[in-house]
Design a protein around this nucleic acid. Structure first.
Lengths: 193, 193
DNA sequence: TTTGTTTTGTACCAATTGGTTCCAAACTAT
DNA sequence: ATAGTTTGGAACCAATTGGTACAAAACAAA
């Protein structure tokens, strides 16, 4: 009963996520954003309202896709025990040769807007909590760790989550940190093969 | 032989650091920056050149003051052994009640500008390295750690540095993390009194 | 006091910012 | 075919952006 939209909603949101992830919120201007989304100005304001709402939609998209697959990875017993799943999480973060590193969108968002944007603060806190509880679960499947010492697991999960975010921050200056196998081994007090 | 400047250079740089630290580079506009520095437009461009140079000066100022005192703290044996010095580092990061958390300027800078500003990337990488090596030294003074196992100390220092930056990032969403005593105890495998 | 030099503050600038308006276009249901 | 409804895109907007120009002001050396 009306003209159908020409752009694809999902690829538009994904494009928004890509550019916000790479450039941040403030540094992304509208023309670049529209180009990345494949949407014209009019359609954008009709469909999303404003730049800030588009950013929140991009954060939700990140939650569904990237955080979702990280959580899935951490709970996938076919990969190996908890240690190797956590190791995989840290190792799969690299981003190609010569490509400007974009870190983790959650880390970027909480650092840029956390203190001044309560919606972003809530969303990013929820996402890091989601990651942390997935790590907590994976730690229950690590040989040498007592799965019933929930307080110790909690502390370890908190440490690993912050370790992850800190490594993501440092990756944006070119830090590689290829030796996760030994670093996590040091942390979990066991050798990782 | 010429008119003396009316503003104080050091308080101006400090003011620039405060506002850039709190708001970030892009989100700080010139009027706010000038106000925070206590400098008029003309004087600013005469003395600093442009906004970006002022930001770099603010980063250097942070290195001298905040990173400097963190390094001093970590090497001050009058405080206690390495563990309590590292604990002190983590505990002294809180920022008052109701105050919008600003995190760590190094973390903020590397996340916001790292991938797109090589000067900032270099400076922030140097600062995090400085912090990491101070942590490495403090670890040499932790009971239960073999000071001659330099590789293990290196790994622990890398972990603690990233843990610190990650915690700083999360603090910007309101995360408090008051339990550093137990978290660091978990990490270093010893009870901290 | 005059001369030379630097700082200061204001007026000004072009470019860019996010956002709105509005109408032609494109579709469906009748 | 036509009426009804929504999209698309360009023209337009005021406000803000970082940065410049320039003259008055404030000093020191002569």
């Amino acid at each position: 009963m009306a003209r159908p939209r020409e752009f694809d909603m999902d690829t538009a949101v994904d494009g928004a996520m890509q550019i916000f992830w790479r450039l941040g919120y403030t540094a992304t201007n509208l023309p670049e954003l529209l180009h990345a989304m494949g949407v014209s100005r009019g359609s954008f304001y009709k469909a999303f309202g404003d730049k800030h709402s588009a950013y929140l939609a991009a954060l939700d998209h990140y939650d569904r896709t990237c955080i979702g697959s990280a959580v899935a990875l951490l709970s996938d017993r076919s990969i190996g025990d908890g240690t190797s799943r956590i190791l995989r999480l840290f190792e799969q973060t690299g981003c190609g040769e010569g490509v400007a590193p974009r870190g983790c969108f959650v880390c970027n968002a909480m650092v840029e807007l956390g203190p001044h944007d309560s919606a972003v603060a809530e969303k990013t806190a929820a996402m890091s909590n989601r990651l942390q509880s997935a790590i907590y679960n994976a730690l229950g499947d690590v040989p040498g760790i007592n799965p019933f010492d929930t307080e110790s697991r909690d502390r370890k999960a908190a440490i690993i989550t912050r370790l992850y975010l800190g490594a993501q921050a440092m990756s944006k200056t070119g830090d590689q940190n290829a030796d996760w196998k030994n670093l996590l081994g040091e942390l979990l007090n066991r050798r990782i093969l």
